[in-house]
Each structure stands twice: as structure tokens, then as C-alpha cells.
Design a protein around this nucleic acid. Sequence first.
DNA 1: AAAGTCTTCAACCGCACGACT
DNA 2: AAGTCGTGCGGTTGAAGACTT
Length: 321
Amino acid sequence: MGRIPCCEKDNVKRGQWTPEEDNKLSSYIAQHGTRNWRLIPKNAGLQRCGKSCRLRWTNYLRPDLKHGQFTVDEEHAIVKLHSVVGNRWSLIAAQLPGRTDNDVKNHWNTKLKKKLSGMGIDPVTHKPFSHLMAEIATTLAPPQVANLAEAALGCFKDEMLHLLTKKRIDFQLQQSGGTSSLNDNSAAAYNSSKQEVKDDTIDRIRMGLSRAIIQEPEIIPSDKPWDSTGATSTSFVFPASVSGFHYGASSFGNENNGSPWSQCTGSTCPAGDERGHLHGKLKDENGEESEGKEVRDGSSIFNSDCVLWDLPSDDLINPMV
DNA sequence: AAAGTCTTCAACCGCACGACT
DNA sequence: AAGTCGTGCGGTTGAAGACTT
């Protein structure tokens, strides 16, 4: 027996909300509050599904919402919180006044993910790509490592070639005295250099991957890098090939180098698994580990004795008690 | 200027959970 | 205990605008 739908789909309007609909909903909620979303559209004279009304209110019409660009501080907070709780947007949004889970999710997917990738950091694990490769390589036999490198090369080759080629061409054009228009000769040069870049780039990628794999990472006890019980704020020491990596404030256009943000390196994240999700092991209020079931409101994440990522609960705007 | 591609973000969908009966 | 209901959540979609060719 399935549950009945929240509304008659044939009789409800979908898509963009009009200012008139917004007014109707806002003024109804101002008068009657937000009890029983199923009845709200009917009573407010809207041909909308209750769920749609709730979404419109919580994500757009609520008077306490902040519209517009995310600040650098907000971005730092999002990435830092994401490294702890993963894709739990409502938890993250709860720490950012005036932002909704939808806002945070959209901003993450459209901007922050790319930013991190651009910095050489895997946005899922919050580890540097090269470190991931090194970490995997330590658990594989050499033939498997070679296969992995080949596979990785296949996956990223096109994208990397595109980026590297573009950069190189731009650089060459700059070097050639700023002649920006491509005449026949320069077009030929472009094409030949493109080929040259392609070959050269593959070699460079191969070398980079090999280095990443061969290099022994100086990491915290490798037997249980994700262990939540022994959580410390130990900083991860990256091999030389990835030195300089950090969620540096300057990388996000902020000079606040002393921020806890810049210390969050991802590799010691005690709470995430390989997909950025939380482990079930969290301490309950009695200090007992509770395994398996994730805590939906996340309160135990931020209030547990376990210090996560230099993120003391005092720093949190909404401790979600 | 037009066509094609990319990016953004509001809105939708289905699922899960807790409260209630 | 089982079913129903209201709500919250995270993933996905698609329209619209921005950008590139």
C-alpha cells in the first residue's frame, strides 16, 4: 500500500512562482503561520502543492533569508563543515545564518567543488589528489598501481589536456609580444604547439602520477587514518610533491592565515568515510559509542567530546542542541 | 548577430523519519 | 504493531541568463 500523494498533481501549478503567488503565500503565512502545509495552498487561494509552498517559503520568501553572494568567510565555513559532515546541507546551512540548505548545496556544486578541484583537492574526501593516489598505492601491489595509474590517466587525460593546452597557448601568446589575433601562421603554430603540448603533457602527467604513487606519504598512523575514536587535531604532513597544500585562506582570497580553516587539511578527518559521509560511530551523551545509525540532527557531531578538525562547538553559530 | 555551450539556481522528486492514531 | 500524515532532507532537473564561438 503506497502512501497517498501530498496533492492532486493534475490540479496544481508547477514551475516558477509569480510575484502574485508570492504575495498570497507571504501574507497568508504572516497571518496564520506555517502550520499544516497541506492546507496552506488551499486556504491561501493558491493552486500549488503544499510541498511546493513550503519550499518556496523556506528557500526564498522567509524574511530572515540572506540573498546574494556568499562571503569568503561563509565559503570557508562551508568547506570546513563539509569536510566534517559531508553532504548534510541542512547541518551546514544551520551554521550560516540566512542561508538555506538549497543555497549551500547549489553553491557547493557550482563553485566550491570546482575551486577545491582547482586547488588539487578532492572535494569528496578533502584530500589532495596526489595524496589519495599515494595512499591507494601503499595498499596495492606494483602491477595494480600501474593499472590504476593508467586508469586515472584515462579518466583525467582529456580534461587535463584541455586545461593545460589552453594555459600554455595563452602563455605563448602573451610571450609573443601580445599579438592576440591568430593569423594563418600563428594558427599553424597553434596547431603544432597543440600537438606538442599534448605529447609533452601526457609525459608530465605520467611523471606526476608516478611520483605521487612512489612517494611515501608522511602521514599519521596509517592503520586507521579515519579512526574517530582517537580523534586528534594532528596535522597531516604532506610529501614534498604536495607541499603547500592547505585550505589556505589566501586561496580563497582571504589573508586570514591564522584561521582554523587553514589548518583543516582533510586527511585526518575523523568523521568521514570515503564518500564524505559520517561513520556511524559517534559518542552518545554517556560517552558510549553508538554504531551504525547516523544521527539525523547532527547534534552529537558538534557536541561530542571528540574534537573535530579544530572546530570547537563554541565556534558554531547554531550548536543544534 | 546568431547559434551553440556553459553556468546558475529555483524547483521538483522520492525517500526517510518521527509523531500520532 | 501497523498505518497514516506532516515534514525534512539530499539528489536531480530544467529554464533562463551569461558567455563563447
